[in-house]
Simulated assay, not measured.
Amino acid sequence: MDNIAGRKPALTWVVHLSVVVLVALWLLPTLGLLVSSFRTADQISNSGWWSAFSAQERQAPAIRLEGEEQQQGATYVIEGTLFPATDTTLTAWGTSSRAPQAYEPGQSVDLDDGWQLVVDDRGLFRLSAPQSFEGERLPRVFTTATTPPEFTLQNYGNVLSGSTSGAGVGQAFLNTLTVSIPATVIPILVAAFAAYALAWMEFPGRALLVAAVVGLLVVPLQLALIPLLQLHNDIGIGKGYLGVWLAHTGFGLPLAIYLLRNYMVGLPKDIIENARVDGATDFQVFVKIVLPLSFPALASFAIFQFLWTWNDLLVALVFLGTDDDRLVLTARLVNLMGSRGGQWEILATSAFVSIAVPLMVFFAMQKYLVRGLLAGSVK
């Protein structure tokens, strides 16, 4: 009875639950990063992103009273406001750090020398005394206030324009595009020709070349960084975009050739043989038949290569250096964390800007990713 048609095995529900958990583990941090990128620095430092849509109660640093005194009869008065924002609601206040919530809004408090202080729920204060305040040090006030949710686009303006003392990632964003797009297109072009040759052309040593490509998949790229950089310096290209394009091409070719060759081998043999009987050359067969039919595999590798080059830090630092005019996004984020680790709003916005393009590329081409990876698995 366990194998009755139409009944799902119990393991299916375990798989579904595991997928839901994995999606939640990936989605929740991304959602938190997105929400934090629109929040102000004060709200990020005082509450989590999950409470961004509700009013926040926080204790502000001590505020020293200040203002112009006015004489009202025999009494000297200083009036003003503690909060620049009118939508902030005071819930408690105090004049000592040991009791920052000692008084309620509107409560009048007697201080030393006959001074009286009252603070209402809007943060308006009135300090009065029988003598002038000139030369006197005015008291500090500790406040606990409720502020409404606040969102701003200023974080993105600061990040993209670089108005926060050079913290902008606008130039780094363009630099990353300059690296990623050619470093994705060049390996695909080279690998497509090589994959066709290994799949459909007969020549001596083809099996050894396929074995060499598979062997190169397990070689760590870190082993080749320094020798490759020395080679670039010897031939005169040094550190620059050409060097990083060639480096990414070399490191990405083994996987590209392996994926595309396995896909092309699974294409219908009759179509290619009929084209050759009709007089088509290998180049015509490749351009007019194999290449259009291999689009899912090409798109699959394009996703892998683009995500790798976009998120790369090591290769970019080795072959581009640390100059600001050629710094990529990942290196810019490292600098932000190293020098301005307290500016969480800048870090959250920069991080979300850096993942926005890979997310769009992945969701736009994910159907080709699945088709390309599963090609040839079922005959």
Rank of each mutant, 00 (worst) to 15 (best):
N155Y: 06
S377K: 08
P148I: 10
P187A: 09
G32P: 02
A211F: 13
M201E: 02
S165V: 05
V361S: 06
F362L: 15
L65C: 04
F53M: 06
W26G: 06
F301T: 11
Q71E: 08
F301K: 02
R137D: 12
L336M: 12
A316R: 12
G166F: 05
L27R: 00
Q56N: 15
V35Y: 09
A60Q: 13
E57N: 07
E104T: 13
R332L: 06
V214N: 13
A62M: 10
I4H: 06
L267F: 04
S96M: 05
G94R: 12
A302W: 02
A302L: 08
N175H: 02
V287R: 15
A10L: 08
D2Y: 04
D2M: 09
K269H: 01
S377I: 03
N335A: 10
K8C: 06
L82S: 11
L320N: 06
T75Y: 00
T152Y: 04
P296C: 03
S45D: 09
Q284L: 12
S36F: 06
Y263N: 05
I63D: 03
F38D: 01
A316M: 06
T349L: 01
N262F: 10
A199F: 00
S45A: 13
T12V: 15
P204H: 04
V277K: 12
A55I: 02
E136N: 08
L117D: 07
G341N: 12
L177R: 01
T152K: 00
S339Y: 15
A24V: 15
L336G: 10
L373Q: 12
N155V: 04
L267S: 02
T330Q: 14
A145P: 07
E136L: 14
T144R: 15
N158G: 10
V213L: 08
